[in-house]
């Protein structure tokens, strides 16, 4: 039986605005799901369905209004910051905004060693192995400014940065949506490799957030469908996509162009 790595219970996030007459906006409503070690779970939904909010909640950037998130049985807010981020890392949608344009790329990688992984002595070697996993050459990356390399490469550097921690869980928030299509497949395959584990890394669980059903189907074992802040359907990928229960999922699938089905023209 696989080990349960992340458990989310009745998670709700509401935003209130205004001091006197408050206005409530529900971003995530009563979401519960589990993630087992060594699997890729896809969160699929249209933009505005609360996927990114869930990612931000798991990565502790925002506080939940109600509900709990357990990492390996512990409530995540009880775990010391440093320890938590050694195990859980995130990758974001926009690689261009993930880098501080004021500094060279080295700055971000150095940060990891300076504040989080103080124990590592051979930084260069750690970097080289992490960058080689994502298929980058160390000399091409170090000493460059973020604007000097492509979006696909930036996203890979970001993945390599996450790998430096040797994390057990990676939250990938639409990691392929803003990079050119030729790099997309590479990155998807990279995630698959990371899940299986390579010679240098252990298998990593991944929460893959996307609005692209095709990608979700390609990469993941299980899938969650979100709509307007709540999870409408979850299950194994094939089951969900072949026999959808919820009308929204059916709609979503119907909108998706398929290579095996002929377009019916009236």
């Amino acid at each position: 039986m696989k080990k349960e790595i992340l458990k989310i219970q009745n998670l709700t996030k509401k935003y209130t605005s205004g001091l006197i007459r408050t206005k409530e906006t529900i971003a995530v409503e009563n979401a519960s799901f589990k993630l087992y070690s060594g699997e890729i779970l896809s969160l699929v939904g249209e933009s505005g369905s609360g996927k990114t909010t869930i990612a931000n909640l798991i990565l502790r950037f925002i506080q939940p209004t109600e509900g709990e998130i357990f990492y390996e049985g512990k409530e995540i807010h009880d775990i010391p910051t440093k320890d938590y981020y050694k195990n859980v890392q995130g990758i974001f949608q926009d690689p261009y905004s993930s880098f501080n344009y004021f500094y060279r790329i080295d700055h971000m990688l150095n940060q990891v060693f300076k504040y989080s992984l103080k124990g590592i002595t051979n930084k260069r070697k750690a970097l080289e192995s992490a960058l080689s996993i994502v298929g980058l050459n160390t000399d091409d990356i170090l000493g460059r400014f973020p604007h000097q390399i492509s979006g696909g490469q930036l996203q890979r550097v970001l993945i390599a940065r996450a790998l430096l921690f040797k994390p057990k869980l990676i939250i990938a928030d639409e990691p392929t949506s803003m990079i050119d299509s030729s790099s997309r497949a590479d990155i998807l395959n990279l995630f698959k490799e990371l899940k299986e584990g390579t010679t240098n890394t252990e298998g990593i669980s991944i929460i893959f957030i996307s609005h692209d059903i095709g990608q979700a189907q390609y990469i993941s074992e299980r899938v969650l469908i979100m709509k307007e802040g709540s999870i409408v359907e979850q299950g194994l990928t094939e089951e969900v996509f072949l026999n959808p229960d919820h009308p929204y999922t059916k709609n979503l699938l119907a909108c998706c162009p398929s290579i095996y089905r002929k377009w019916e023209l009236d």
Binding site: I26, G48, T52, N56
Partner: peptide, 10 residues
């Protein structure tokens, strides 16, 4: 995040 808010309020 913002999109979520906007979408729902709209």
């Amino acid at each position: 995040m913002k999109l979520t808010e906007m979408g729902i309020t709209e």
